[in-house]
Design a protein around this nucleic acid. Structure first.
Length: 453
RNA sequence: GGAAGGGUGUCCGAGUGGUUUAAGGAAACGGUCUUGAAAACCGUCGUGGGGCAACUCACCGUGGGUUCGAAUCCCACCCCUUCCGCCA
């Protein structure tokens, strides 16, 4: 969520930015509620203060604990109870409205009304030219007995699949490849340097997160989409995560972390679950849009000042991985309508799919600034500035010592590879006239040197 | 599923109705000392809200209740740990 203080000071800007994202929130009504809420709180607090004074007085050794004085205490208690009852519905509506305010897009995020207005930043690699009609993933899958959706439908319903044989080996090769790259500090350093990012070169730590999470942290992450995306296990009041990001970004829920932990860089691998409600009839063929798919996901927690650079590192890594694999893609700067509620900025990578003859989304990279961290209460305790530095900055001689400032962290997440879509891209882009699939060179070492499927 | 023990600040941990204004310790930060460091010593040090500020309010797993007054007493719930059972 956004800082209410900021909304008070910049109501028009917040309203304007929310409208750009397509979230019509009534900021003036929110501020009215905020005003009423604060007035009531002020009253309650003054009553509580008088209660404290009064009861302390009564509690004194041999204090004047007469019936009259106890009656006075009871009156204060009644006032507080009444004011709290009045506050409650306002508090509920206030919290709801505050959470409904989307994050503010950064200044350079293009304003647009739909994903059609995302801006193509660059196109890398050329779509392969075939002297035959390229096959779709499901056709290639059928040829080599790699995908069985019919039996999966019998067992689990539509949008599920049994993946088999060399396709599975390809997935594990992909995982091995990415693990090797992102845990390699030399590579991170190279990408940091090439992009002039001036941030840590610390490698990513691989994580296998839980696949389920509770309502409270999920809601606080601003990622819970109960209507369209997320599956619920009613019996146990748990949700199935729709991305490793959901169980990674919530990992430090309600914590204050020491500065020397930062940046925290995780590479999560998890099976992800999506209801795909409202997509009936869309992308039904093949394995492009599934209820269940495996995904490698980057998640970083950073200091406020390095958040944007971290986001850029994620993008650099995504491009590096795509280029190593040899897949043609476009990098898109997402416009205000498409970045999503908690995002301040975001990019997509759309990979070329010869079967459809289109670029389709395979990656996304999100930068949330402190929006997620505020509700998740994930904070960093900064090291104290040295006294001399403090004195220079403030002109004060007083030693600036003791515990360090507490700030909200910044979060950024990004797809490394979504398995099913990447496998589909590999199948279709590296297919041959006779229906074989050339194994990308970089993956061959992880497939026993196998050249083709 | 059965049983027991727990949940207090960044961490550990004391605290069974009113100087708790949450002890004490550790970590962290500043200083003294030192060639430098360590040690020792001195000092600072919970989070969140309101207020220009002095200051003030809340927070001891969560929600209710009792009381003039609750970390402390009562009720309900949640979570964690261990053991037994079942099980990959």
């Amino acid at each position: 969520m956004i800082d209410i203080q900021y909304i008070r000071e910049n109501p028009d800007l917040v309203a304007q930015k929310a409208a750009q994202k397509g979230y019509p929130v009534d900021i003036s009504h929110l501020l009215e509620l905020d005003k009423i809420r604060r007035d009531k709180l002020t009253y309650i607090e003054s009553e509580l203060a008088s209660r404290n004074v009064h009861s302390k007085w009564l509690g004194k050794e041999g204090g004047p604990s007469s019936e009259e004085n106890r009656e006075k205490g009871r009156r204060i208690k009644e006032n507080v109870a009444r004011a709290r009852a009045e506050l409650e519905p306002i508090e509920v509506e206030y919290q709801e409205m505050l959470r409904a305010v989307p994050n503010m897009p950064l200044a350079d995020v293009p304003v647009g009304a739909s994903e059609d207005e995302n801006v193509v930043v660059k196109t890398v690699g050329a779509p392969p030219e075939f002297d035959f009609t390229p096959r779709h993933d499901y056709q290639l899958g059928e040829l080599h007995d790699l995908i069985d959706k019919e039996r999966a439908a019998k067992i689990a319903g539509s949008r599920f699949a049994y993946l088999k044989g060399d396709l599975v080996r390809l997935q594990f090769a992909l995982i091995q490849f990415v693990m090797g790259e992102l845990t390699n500090e030399q590579l991170i350093k190279k990408l940091v340097d090439e992009n002039n990012l001036n941030i840590s070169t610390k490698p990513f730590t691989p994580v296998l997160p839980p696949a389920m999470l509770r309502t409270e942290p999920y809601r606080a992450s601003a990622r819970l989409n109960a209507e369209e995306v997320t599956y619920k296990i009613e019996q146990d009041d748990l949700w199935l995560q729709a991305s490793a990001e959901h169980t990674l970004c919530t990992m430090y829920w309600n914590e204050i972390l020491p500065e020397d932990m930062f940046p925290i860089r995780y590479l999560g691998y998890a099976t992800s679950f999506r209801r795909e409600a409202g997509t009936y009839g869309k992308d039904e063929e093949g394995i492009f849009r599934m209820h269940q798919f495996d995904k490698l996901e980057m998640e970083s927690f950073t200091t406020p000042e390095t958040g944007l650079a971290e986001h850029k590192l994620h993008i650099a890594i995504q491009e590096h991985l795509m280029q190593k694999l040899g897949l043609p893609y476009q990098l898109l700067q997402k416009c205000t309508a498409d970045i999503g509620k908690p995002n301040a900025a975001g990019v997509d990578i759309n990979c070329w799919f010869p079967g459809q003859g289109k670029y389709r989304e395979t990656h996304t990279a999100d930068y949330m600034t402190d929006y997620q961290a505020r509700d998740l209460k994930i904070r960093i305790r900064r090291k104290k500035r040295p006294v001399s530095e403090f004195a220079a900055a403030t002109g004060q001689e007083t030693a600036y010592s003791g515990g360090g400032d507490v700030q909200l962290v910044h979060t950024a997440d990004a797809t490394a590879f979504a398995m099913s879509r990447t496998l589909k891209a590999i199948l279709e882009n590296f297919q041959t006239r006779d229906g074989h699939i050339i194994v990308p060179e970089i993956l061959r070492p992880f497939m026993g040197g196998q050249l083709q499927i």
